[in-house]
Every structure is written in structure tokens, then in C-alpha cells.
Amino acid sequence: MRSHVLSAEWTKLRTVSGTAWLMAAVAVLTVAVSAAADAATKCPGMACPVDTTKLSLTGIQAGEALIGVLAVLSVCSEYSNGMIRTTLAAMPRRHTVLTAKAAVVCCLALLAGTVAVLGSLLAGRLILPGNGFTSAHGFALLSLGNGSTARAAVGSVLYLGLIALLSVGIAAMVRDSAITIGVVLGTLYLLPVLAAFVANPVWHRRIERYTPMAGLNIQATTGLRSLVIGPWAGLSVLAAWAAAVLVAGGLLLQWRDA
């Protein structure tokens, strides 16, 4: 039963031409932005306060926007072309439909995210030593053999998966694609900008600690003590948001007319 639903959702997403392009775009944009950030950062002397793992994963902040688009594509387009009525007629257990959709989108995000993260780390490994981030300056070559780098890499892939779930949940609640992507991008970009600008320290701390942006802390490998919230704790905050929004989306799907 459930496998039918899953395969139906998979078929729908697979046969839309946009999906493959979007996944490729996630990987390309992420690696390109990461490589550009690597290339722009130099370490001329001894004391460079740079977290090279985090730096070489900068592109995640660009790629996540396209993950949001992918989620919107899978949910909202069904509402805009009326497909949702067919879907729900064929599979009347609505929360199963949403679960299947979330699972498929999340898997695609994890897949694109894995390529994006590996590509970004490879770019960092190739570019950073040329910019002075050498062992002479106290920087080891980026490697997944390093525990904290591996945690940041795996965590970044999971982060993209959670962003996909969050976006599917928001899409199920909002249903209109333009507003959904606005809310998703507002969550992804407005919060960090506000955290940088909000002068009130109480609000500053609240934003960094309790909003989905806490999830990006999973990328930190140095200065962990000065983080407002730890790497895994931060990712858990994002997971909690994603779960809450998905449940809310599922309930609304159950209660509302499609």
C-alpha cells in the first residue's frame, strides 16, 4: 500500500523535466558558490581565524534555495493544475500522500546534497592550500577522515534533507507556490540577515538559537564553545521545526478541501 503511494509520488516527480535540472542546479550552484568563497579567502600570515570546513561549505546557503523550489514544485504544482484532486481520489489516505511526497523530496535533496557537499569539499581541498591554508599555517588538508569535517559534511547533507521536509510542510500549509517560496526563502535568508543586524542582544540570541537557522551550526568545526547552540543541537532545532511544520501541513491537508 505504502509502496504504491511512494512509487506514485516518485513517478510524478521523476517525469517532470524540471526535477533533474533542479537537482543538477543544486549541485552546481552549491559547488560554484563554495569554490568562489574558497578562492576569495586568503591566509597570508600565521593567524587566520578561518574555519576551512565551514568556508568550503558556504555554497549550501545558495543550494538550499533550490531545494525549496524542488519542494514547491512537488506540492504546489499539484494544486495549481488540479492534479491534487486526482491524487487524493486515487489515494484517499491524505497523510500517507504527504508522507510519501516528503520522503521522495527528502531523498532527492539528500542525493543532490551528497553530490553538492562532496564537490564543495573537493573544491576546498584543491583551492585552499593555494591560498595559504597550508600545514605550515596550521591548516590540515580537508578530509572526510577528520572527525569534525566528516560531521560537518554529513550534517550539511542532512541539513538539506531537513530543509526539503520543512519546505514540503510549508507548501502543504500554504499551497500557493509564490507565497510558499516566499515563506521558505524568508526563513532561509531573512533570519540570518536579521541575526546580523538586530542590535537587541536578547532577540539576536533568540534568532540564532531557536529558529531554523540554528541548523547551519552543524558546519562549524572550530570555536564550538563560542557557538550560541552546538552543532547537533542546532540541527535538532531545525529537525523540530521541520517535524512541526510537516505535522501542521498534514493536519491542514486532512481538514481542508483540496
Binding site: 568563497a37 546557503q61 535568508y189 531573512l190 540577515v193 546580523a196
Partner: peptide, 11 residues
Amino acid sequence: VLPFLLAVTVL
């Protein structure tokens, strides 16, 4: 927005 965000946080 993203260039601004990167400029004030990462780069």
C-alpha cells in the same frame, strides 16, 4: 539578498 548575507557573514 544572498550576496549581502554572504558579505556580512562569511566572506
